[in-house]
Design a protein around this nucleic acid. Structure first.
Ligand code: FES
Ligand code: FES
Lengths: 155, 155
DNA sequence: AAAATAAAAGACCTTTATATCTTATTGTAA
DNA sequence: TTACAATAAGATATAAAGGTCTTTTATTTT
């Protein structure tokens, strides 16, 4: 559905959103540890998002990534666009070069609604809106760290 | 959304369906030419589908791929399963190892409906059902060959 | 019946894209 | 001025996509 890069980018920005109280900064190391993303991969994706003004960054000690009030108005669709482009929203399900009603593939009309719905989810979800939901603790961004429990056992 | 392999496999089986009048056989060469699929890539995918009893094949002169009455009862979901597995129907949109309500990601509930709808389209579309639709000529499996028109111009 | 031929089946290789790691640089705060 | 953390470029590993060749099987033709 989404590329690994895009999954990582979305999880990362949601993690930053969750920890963006009064401009608190989150390090790439922190993000990579918590979300099981290879450190330098996370760093690269965060760079792209920072360059696209979707997130803000600060170098130096106590530096890291954070969200300004303006950043919080962005939607998850902005993140998908920045990393994967608009393919998931507009491409033909069978891979025809152009998806249109002038030359539709046999699944074209069945997938119009689905693609609109997918776009709607990402576009309607702004970081601002999702923030309280993330803080509620009912939703997760990683899997249970079973290897950690395993190590404790061995001690 | 789907892998290139899966797109090719779906287009191929739809092409065979369209040409499956009284057990007519279609060659891999024919399919690869008509649908712009690399020949040996198409051949490999058709092998997988034949092994999974989704399509039938016949070696030797006038041989090729065709569909029995039994083959025609298969749905497009069977093809997706055989090539890509069930990932598109069940995987977490953010790539969590397990997608479930016990530990849902922030987009879990938004994507439940979408994934069910995608599964429904593929499962509800049997080859038998789609056959007449394909014969109507209102739907296409390839793009217009613009390079051909270009060459005509240069002559 | 034997030989020639057509087409799928299958093993294996090359290329390309994606994902991950390495190393070095730049800016910031204490 | 020193340590910290983002930025940046580039190398390596892995997986997906695409291509070459050989083998097997069935059908013609002689
Ligand atoms: S042409 Fe295939 S989905 Fe639109
Ligand atoms: S847990 Fe992410 S979609 Fe279900």
């Amino acid at each position: 559905m989404l590329s690994k890069s895009c999954e990582y980018a979305l999880k990362s920005i949601l993690y930053i959103t969750k920890h963006s109280q009064n401009l608190e900064r989150v390090g790439a190391k922190n993000i990579s540890d918590e979300l099981d993303i290879p450190y330098h991969f996370a760093a690269k994706l965060l760079q792209i998002l920072a360059k696209a003004d979707i997130i803000s960054s600060q170098k130096g000690p106590n530096g890291g990534f954070y969200l300004t009030a303006d950043n919080l108005t962005h939607s998850l669709a902005d993140v998908v666009f920045a990393i994967d482009g608009n393919g998931i929203f507009v491409d033909c399900i069978l891979g025809l070069k152009t998806c249109s009603e002038t030359r539709p593939c046999p699944l074209h009309y069945e997938f119009i609604d689905i693609k609109i719905k997918i776009a709607k989810v990402f576009e309607d979800t702004t970081l601002d809106q999702i923030k309280s939901k993330l803080l509620s603790g009912e939703f997760y961004l990683n899997n249970l760290n079973v290897s950690c429990q395993y190590e404790r056992k061995n001690k």
